[in-house]
Amino acid sequence: MIINHPLLGPRDAAEFVYLGDANLINRPEGLGDNAEDAMYDHVYLRDNPAGIHRELWYHEQGDRSWLVVTRNTLTHEVTSVELARDVARSMGRSR
């Protein structure tokens, strides 16, 4: 698989480390009312879809940026690649 890095261009997926569902960047508040359930859900449960999947890849053997890759789990086709930082900021986070 080739991942089209937004800053570095097309890179081999072997340069990256895979973490999992992109929702992992939305870590729940640890002291909220529903913290235990929310944390269990965040850490352990997955949608695991057959089809379009947004997921986190870390460019370990490159610029060490975290990317949000949109990929089809049935065909391995990568349709979009964003910097995870930009994704988080677009959701109103400071970083």
């Binding site: 999992g20 859900d41 352990y44 449960l45 997955r46 949608d47 695991n48 879809p49 057959a50 789990t73």
Partner: peptide, 18 residues
């Protein structure tokens, strides 16, 4: 192998990735 796909039809999310 397909647990996620089948159990999602029952509205369940699992501690599993395929």
């Amino acid at each position: 192998g397909s647990s996620g796909r089948v159990m999602s039809m029952a509205g369940m999310r699992l501690p599993i990735e395929s």
